[in-house]
């Protein structure tokens, strides 16, 4: 399915929450630090399960990654006014639900540039406003909604664990690479991701 040696030419299969699979180029996937930590050096045996996110969201996220493949290296958040026409169209096309799904997926996949632009867009909604105006801009959740959020975070932690396990499984099957460092890498990543999501779901 994949080869670690020429990841820019190869296509990886991504699996969405609906169980659908689609191709993403290695170059686009490499913008995801989560992917880099888990699959880049060892390859993936079968589809990579990002099953906490639907196909539309994942396609939107990787559309961004494919587009920014040829851009210069990321050097910190840009001011909104510095965004290209393509970037602006990309964001303007999304409705609120899709925007939130994209932030969540981008955060999970640890795509620094996309997450940062999304955050800057939200910060922009709050700029120049007083407290009363800010209250109107943000919806304050009820206790039930907060509880639901916690459940989602827990679910994501479980998903992260699942992805890490998949990576571990792949690592075990990879015989051509040195065994010990890969296993250490996978174990470290699994621990890191699980800790990260558990800590936020506990907040």
């Amino acid at each position: 399915m994949t080869s670690p040696a020429s990841s820019s030419e190869v296509k990886y299969l991504i699996e969405s929450s609906e169980g659908n699979t689609f191709d993403v180029s290695g170059a686009a996937l490499r913008q995801s630090n989560t992917f880099n930590a888990m699959f880049l050096n060892i390859g993936a045996d079968g589809p990579i399960p990002f099953t906490d996110y639907n196909e539309a969201t994942l396609k939107k996220v990787f559309e961004y990654c494919e587009h920014s493949v040829n851009e210069e290296n990321y050097s910190g958040p840009k001011h909104q006014d510095d965004l290209s026409k393509w970037d602006l169209n990309f964001f303007n096309e999304m409705d609120q639900k899709m925007f939130i799904d994209v932030i969540n997926a981008s955060n999970f996949l640890d795509i620094e540039r996309l997450t940062s632009y999304c955050c800057e867009r939200i910060a922009r909604m709050l700029r120049g406003k007083n407290t009363q105006e800010m209250i109107k801009v943000i919806t304050l959740p009820t206790a039930e909604e907060l509880e639901a959020k916690q459940k989602v975070e827990e679910k994501k932690a479980a998903a992260a664990k699942k992805v890490a396990e998949k990576a571990a499984e792949t690592a075990e099957k990879t015989e051509t690479l040195e065994e010990l460092p890969v296993q250490q890498l996978v174990q470290t990543t699994r621990n890191k991701l699980t800790r990260k999501y558990l800590s936020f779901s506990n907040e």
């Binding site: 969540n104 955060n107 909604m125 959740p141 909604e145 936020f200």
Partner: peptide, 14 residues
């Protein structure tokens, strides 16, 4: 942009 926006539904890191 999107208003009202459910800010607190976003993950802690975001």
């Amino acid at each position: 942009m999107y208003s009202p926006f459910p800010l607190l539904r976003l993950p802690g890191v975001v």
